[in-house]
Amino acid sequence: MSGLLLHLRQNYGAVLAITIFVILFVVFLSLHPRGPSVYVMTTASNTGAALAFVAMGQTLPVLTGGLDLSIGSILALCNALASEVVNGSPERVALGVVLVLLTGLACGLINGIVVVYGRIQPIIATLASGAVYTGLALLIRPIPGGEIDDVLSEAMTYETFGVIPTSLLLIVAVVLLIWVPFKNSVLGRGVYAAGSSEVAAYMSGVRVDRSKLAAYSLAGLFAAIGGLFLGFQTFSGDALIGVPYTLNSIAAVVIGGTSLYGGIGGVIGSIFGAYILRTINGVMFFAGAPPLAQPLFEGIILLGAVALAALRVVRIRNRLEVMD
């Protein structure tokens, strides 16, 4: 029992995010004229999926104490590329998906190299690389269009076994197959160590460089999955599709309880952070909130969530107590 309590305490941010999400989602369903039908659930799941993937990606650089401002651009580049290569014969589609994922991974790796070996501030490094990725995306797809395989797209955006939204399964699969093994690996521990105290981690023999490279690379991979999923939703590509995603991903990470100073948090909270942002929209939609005041409400809820997450630190009288 004390183990469970400790676990909850350590994941205070994520637990809070899950609680807020559940409350919001219940409100959303009660306001929705159709109620909790499969169609409504699938729509809700699809709506937040791309942002959830990008937010998962953003979590990793943030955990190292950095930030990735290019993540929306990587998403857009991968989305644009997908509209060129994820079509045709089943073999080509499969190859296209792999190519898109590798492209995201490569973009992330480049970010990591610039940050780690170029020793440039992550904010500036990724702002610059983001502009490059957007430029590439515009070269591939100057105006929105292209084609993404519709059979795969429908499979990914409808339900599995007729009841479970496939996008939800996809998120669970990514968490179980990528995040959990990574978090428990030496590289993953290094990400947390680097974010907590880079110097201490280095002195303790943690390969900080490798962990950071891995964090930025995985961020690119997650962004690629997000870009692919947006492609499944839209059956096409758009080089400018990523613009709202960078800042929203940071918001989702913060709401999800990951500290912007690094070292504390995880992708689970970020996923719920993303869905909280999306559910707020849905609630305001059916509550009849003035459309132009929507960003205002979003901002207020964001501030509230961050304030709640910060409460834990306020209670601590001495910063050293954080250590126990």
Partner: peptide, 17 residues
């Protein structure tokens, strides 16, 4: 807003409603 996924979901919600 400018996010395509949000507009798709708004229309889907309207269809559902």
């Amino acid at each position: 807003g400018t996010d395509v996924a949000a507009q798709i979901s708004a229309i889907d919600n309207m269809i559902a409603a």
